[in-house]
Amino acid sequence: MTIDDRYIIFHKPYGVLSQFTQETPEHITLKDYIDVPDVYPVGRLDWDSEGLLLLTNNGQLQHHLSNPRFGHERTYWVQVERIPDLDAINKLQTGVQIQDYRTRPAKVRLLPENPPVGDRHPPIRFRKNVPTAWLEMTLTEGKNRQVRRMTAAVGFPTLRLIRVSIGNLSLNDLSLGQWRDLTPSEVKLLHDALSHKGIRKRLNR
C-alpha cells in the first residue's frame, strides 16, 4: 500500500456496466458516475445487478480480491420468484450443479421481512398471484451470473440482485449512484483481511 493508492466504494444502480468504456452510445458506464482517473473495478457486477462495487488503482490488490482461490466473502440480497422451501435453501447451502460446475457451500437464509432497499428503476416484473421472497446469500466465489443460475437451478428465479458487502466492506447508508473513498480504518481492515490469507507481503513489495 502506498500514499498514492486509491480505494473507492460505489453503489451501482441497475443498468450500469461495471466498466468505464462505452461499447455502444446507449450504454451507461461507470464514467457517468465516477470522475476519478486510473481506478478499476475489483471483480464485476452484472449490468442488471445493483449494489457494492469496489474500485482501486492497486493492481495487485485488485487481482487478489478478484481471484476465487482466496475465497473472499460477498453477500447479496436476492429477491426471488415464489418462496423457497427448506429443501431449496439446503441445496443452495451445500452446492448446486450449474452447467458443468458444482458451486461451493454458501451461507443462505430466508429473510423474515423485506430488506431496507428502495424501488428499482425499471421495476422488477411482478406476476399476479405469484409471491416473492428475499434471500441473503454469502458466497466465496463469483462465477459468471452465479447467483442467478443457483436460484434458477433450485426452481426460484432471481428477480432482483443487490450486493451489500465484500468482506468487511458494506454499503451502509451510501445512496444509490453515489461513491466515496474508503476511510483509513476500512483500508486497514481490507489489508488486514488479505494478511490473514498470507498475501499482504506480496501486495506491499
Rank of each mutant, 00 (worst) to 15 (best):
P105K: 02
L110H: 10
D32G: 02
D46Q: 01
Q99D: 15
R69N: 06
R74K: 15
I83D: 00
D48S: 15
P112Q: 00
Q62P: 07
E73A: 14
P68A: 07
A88G: 01
R44F: 11
R109D: 10
L55K: 11
V80I: 06
N57S: 03
T75R: 09
P84S: 09
P84F: 09
Q93R: 15
E73C: 08
Y40R: 13
L61Y: 07
I83Y: 00
Q97P: 02
T103F: 13
H72I: 14
L65E: 00
I28P: 02
N90H: 10
H27K: 14
R104W: 09
V96Y: 05
P25R: 02
R82D: 13
R102E: 01
Q93Y: 03
I98S: 08
S49V: 04
Y33N: 02
Q97I: 12
Q97M: 12
D100M: 06
N90V: 05
L86P: 11
G71H: 13
W47I: 15
L111S: 03
L30R: 04
V78F: 00
F70L: 12
Q79M: 13
G71R: 14
E50R: 01
N58W: 11
T29V: 06
P25K: 04
N57G: 05
Q79A: 03
L55I: 08
I34M: 03
E73H: 13
P84T: 08
F70D: 04
Q60K: 15
V78T: 01
P68R: 03
N58E: 09
L55R: 07
N90K: 12
G95F: 08
Q62E: 10
Q97W: 08
V96I: 07
I89D: 06
Y76A: 00
D46I: 02
N67C: 09
T75E: 14
L45W: 07
P37L: 06
H72Y: 15
W47G: 10
H63D: 12
V36T: 05
P25M: 02
V78D: 00
N90Q: 12
P68N: 06
D100R: 10
Q99W: 11
D35I: 03
H63M: 12
R109W: 13
T56R: 08
D32A: 10
E73L: 12
T103H: 08
L110E: 06
L54K: 12
Q99I: 10
Q93K: 14
D38K: 15
V39L: 11
W47T: 15
E50I: 02
D100E: 12
A106P: 05
N67I: 10
P25I: 02
I83K: 06
P68H: 07
T29M: 03
S49R: 02
R82A: 13
P105Q: 00
G95Q: 01
E113M: 09
R109Q: 14
Y40I: 11
L54N: 07
L54F: 15
P84D: 06
L45I: 05
R102K: 11
E113C: 09
Q62V: 07
I28K: 13
L52Q: 04
A88E: 02
N67L: 09
R102L: 02
T29N: 03
L53E: 03
S49W: 07
Y33T: 04
G43H: 05
P105L: 00
T29A: 05
